[in-house]
């Protein structure tokens, strides 16, 4: 039985549709109920929905054999897993944003508000810039407006929220998309179904191109 951790929400539904098209369907998942785990014995697959930022943990610790997680999560938590495939969906970018009239004064320590402390730290270390990280858990955009921080490091999809709050992207750190990840041990001992999924996803991606 192959355990698959899917990220809750729109992205996860898209991912399930891809897995279904790849021949790993599980009809019960579409029933509207409160079940947490969905199994299809014939296809040898079991799906479960988890919080998107938790997918990597489930996979790293082997509760799920494979899963789909955003590159942002992988960069932030650096789990010890195989990153097997870029699903090319859920695309956005990790970016530095600030007020439209922001001017970076390199003489001062830069105050950075973010949910992604590790990514922010790595990025500014690579630039050799001294920063003060302010870890927030949500509504990051409000921080520069209230003067809590100079800039934010966050995911930008369309940029609408930024625009409406007179903020703009200053720098793109890295493009983000959803990735298929696998637990290292599972990859050794359940290589057949994992390879099968990988192959079908790859050929589907080729067709679309």
């Amino acid at each position: 039985m192959l355990n698959v951790a899917l990220p809750k929400g729109r992205l996860g539904e898209k991912v399930y549709a891809m897995f279904e098209a790849a021949g790993f369907e599980c009809p019960s998942i579409k029933e509207n109920n409160r079940k947490l785990i969905f199994e299809n014995k014939e296809a040898g697959v079991r799906y479960f929905w988890v919080k998107p930022s938790d997918v990597a943990i489930y996979v790293e610790r082997g509760a799920a054999d494979i899963g789909v997680a955003g590159k942002d999560i992988l960069l932030e938590y650096e789990p010890d897993v195989y990153e097997l495939f870029d699903l090319d969906i859920g695309k956005c970018r990790m970016a530095v944003a600030a007020k439209n009239d922001f001017h970076d004064d390199p003489q001062k320590t830069l105050r950075v508000a973010t949910k992604f402390s590790n990514i922010a730290r790595n990025y500014y270390t690579s630039l050799g810039r001294d920063i003060d990280i302010i870890h927030l858990n949500g509504s990051i955009e409000i921080a520069p407006i209230l003067g809590l921080s100079d800039v934010i490091v966050d995911i930008v999809e369309t940029g609408t929220t930024l625009k409406e709050n007179n903020l703009s992207v200053q720098e793109t750190i890295v493009p983000i998309s959803a990735r298929l990840i696998a637990n290292k041990t599972s990859y050794k001992f359940k290589s057949e179904p994992i390879e099968a999924i990988l192959q079908s996803l790859a050929s589907m991606a080729k067709e679309q191109k």
Binding site: E60, R61, G62, D80, N183, K184, T185, S186, K188, F189
Partner: peptide
């Protein structure tokens, strides 16, 4: 080395 049932090497 990996052993089936243990998630890490």
């Amino acid at each position: 080395g990996f052993v089936n049932g243990v998630p890490t090497g």
